[in-house]
């Protein structure tokens, strides 16, 4: 059974169609990368999977629970880092994580163990007692990440998890994602192409609310294949541009 299953998702805001018939499934052990220009519908799709928005049409199930029929059951199994990693600014990371643990109903030993693990994995030790609004952007992002992985969910939805981080922090977050990948189904969104190569086992190029191409890495770090297109390691940008804008299609293939 796929951990995330999405069928014919459509989301309209008034006359604007943000998501236009997206379907896909994610298995355990997969890190799926949403790749696409700004405004492509990546965040909207994530908001629908996590149950924040109800789609205009289509179906989403998480671990077998339909998000429209059993929203609370589905939400229990999801960890979500929203875009910009919002949190309650006046709380300290410890207070904030305790609050999330309370709402999620974690108790006693299990609660203590999970809190300790999330704090350790996100590297929050040094700032646990400082109000979140005094933290740097990197630490704020890690607070959001700790909150998302706190209950050891089967499904992780991370909206731009490394946005605004310095290279070392990016490396640490990617290492964490890879570490958790084996036991979970993870979806990340990004517009950084190197990130896809660094952590993803599959990738969807999304633009104007549609899936334009699906890619998988070639064996032996031999680059990526998106349908008929093939990219050498580190050369995803040309393919991305070709697929999302349609430019230079014939010359490049001829070359």
């Amino acid at each position: 059974m796929a951990m995330i299953e999405i069928k014919q998702l459509i989301m309209r805001f008034g006359t604007f169609t943000a998501v236009d018939g997206i379907s896909f499934a994610v298995e355990r052990g997969t890190v799926l990368g949403f790749l696409g220009p700004n405004g492509a519908g990546k965040s909207t799709t994530m908001k629908i999977i996590t149950g924040f928005l109800a789609p205009t049409m289509g179906q989403v199930s998480v671990c077998g629970f339909d998000t429209a029929m059993a929203p609370v059951e589905a939400k229990r199994r999801i960890g979500y880092l929203p875009e910009g990693a919002p949190a309650y600014a006046e709380m300290t990371p410890r207070e904030f994580l305790n609050f999330v643990a309370d709402v999620r109903g974690l108790r006693r030993d299990d609660r203590r163990r999970k809190l300790d693990l999330a704090i350790e994995r996100a590297g929050l030790g040094p700032v646990l007692e400082q109000p979140i609004d005094t933290l740097s952007k990197g630490f704020k992002r890690r607070v959001g990440l700790a909150q998302a992985i706190l209950h050891d969910p089967d499904v992780l939805i991370l909206d731009e998890p490394t946005d605004g981080l310095d290279p070392n922090q990016k490396f640490a977050v990617r290492a964490l994602i890879k570490e958790m990948a084996a036991t979970k189904a993870i979806v990340i969104s990004t517009h950084i192409l190197e990130e896809v190569e660094a952590v993803c086992t599959r990738s969807l190029i999304i633009a104007r609310g549609r899936v334009l191409a699906e890619g998988t890495p070639l064996p032996d770090a031999g680059g990526w294949r998106f349908g008929e297109h093939q990219a050498a390691p580190g050369r995803l940008d040309a393919i991305f541009r070709r697929i999302t804008t349609g430019e230079n299609q014939h010359q490049e293939i001829a070359a």
């Binding site: 149950g51 609370v72 999801i78 929203p82 949190a87």
Partner: peptide, 14 residues
């Protein structure tokens, strides 16, 4: 304003 509503409403609570 802070966007925390997105976090709050994706927690498993009615």
């Amino acid at each position: 304003k802070t966007g925390s509503i997105e976090l709050l409403l994706t927690l498993p609570i009615r």
